[in-house]
Design a protein around this nucleic acid. Structure first.
Lengths: 208, 208
DNA sequence: GCTCAAACTGAACTGAACTCAGGTTGAAAT
DNA sequence: ATTTCAACCTGAGTTCAGTTCAGTTTGAGC
């Protein structure tokens, strides 16, 4: 399994793919996907609108790519943070902390992902879009399994009371990602405080 | 305060407003707002596309109306469920249970609301849309305050340990509404089980 | 300095949301 | 029973962002 991992295209020396993705994350994250014109992204990068189609099949294809990349990052960060922690409670805490140890650009990317999550539900007409969508969906399930497995491990070890690990995992994950709907770096509350509160809440709701 | 409550227009005897809202909830909820053509809604109701504009200024205006109505409902249900419960823990449990005591139509409406929440962030160009948006935003804050106040009351009474009630309230609310992103009535898990698990989780994370 | 794929472009096309300029209908007042 | 008029509706356009087309330019590597 996990054979379907998309290999991102090798970028030529004058490729603007990375610049497009960055500009798109910024616009989609700040103004919203619907509110940003595809041509705005082109302008920001300094190319004509049609040049975008050299890199992405469509505006949606670009969005789906951003979402997949963010999901890949989330999954990788979780795995790295929890890898060599045997104590389930410590692993749980590390997982939460990793989820909030993010740069401003990554925050925007999270926001884009969360705001457009429902896009992953329905099939796409074009091949490349559908490929990205399916890959993203699989990554969503992987991230869900990351949390579920952690909880199941803890329950098996007797560190957590036995409950429906899948549903509980979804609830934990839901609580964590809900932060990206309202959090803004410019706001009054520092992210570290949010992280601490969520970390404590997760430990309490999973434990006893 | 709360003076800005929108009074929904009196409907004439042959008004199709209710029918449009119902069809729109169904389409937006099942296929997604972006994926449903405004004319699909017209077809379902049995009128020409342009007749829609007699009732709503735009597709977005209809969506915003649906969202506002759902927020109003959520707020009212919470208030009703928790009104005469003095014990903070009991009130908390009642609030969670009320959030999940919903019909299939209301589930779809929740899904529409959650999937398009980010629409409330940026101002709208047209007056009527903006009015709906602002009203919806206020209702969001009211719902947030519902939970926050409940937590603060519990903390003041010594029923819950003192923590940042606003952040905790947002976390609780985030966990609850996250269910509408994945739950489908056709799925294997009955809603009552989800409700029970969330209820327990909320009590544990808020209490100690 | 040649080559050719990568990178780009202006002009045209598409389709869904929306506007316009009226036409129809039926509840209620006369 | 007729009239009235606001509510309700329509077909024919318009608009605009996303996309396609039919090529042209660029520059890294031979």
């Amino acid at each position: 399994m996990a054979r379907a991992r998309i290999v991102d295209p090798d970028e030529g020396p004058r490729s603007k793919r990375a610049a497009i993705l960055e500009a798109a994350v910024e616009y989609f994250g700040e103004a919203g996907y619907e509110n940003t014109k595809w041509s705005d992204v082109a302008d920001r990068v300094g190319i004509g609108q049609t040049a975008l189609y050299h890199y992405f099949e469509s505006k949606a294809h670009c969005l789906l790519t951003i979402m997949r990349l963010e999901l890949q990052r989330s999954h990788d960060m979780f795995a790295e943070a929890t890898a060599d922690l045997d104590d389930p409670v410590e692993a749980l805490r590390a997982g939460v902390r990793a989820a909030f140890a993010v740069s401003e650009h990554e925050i925007r990317q999270m926001r884009v992902l969360q705001a457009n999550m429902s896009l992953l539900a329905t099939p796409r007409k074009s091949k490349r879009e559908e490929t990205e969508r399916v890959a993203a969906r699989q990554l969503v399930q992987m991230v869900e399994r990351d949390w579920t497995n952690l909880l199941m491990r803890g329950m098996a070890k007797g560190a957590f009371p036995v409950r429906d690990a899948h549903m509980l995992g979804l609830a934990v994950l839901g609580m964590i990602v809900s932060v990206w709907r309202w959090y803004r770096p410019s706001g009054a509350i520092p992210l570290s405080e949010i992280s601490d509160l969520i970390e404590g809440s997760v430990v309490r709701m999973v434990g006893e």
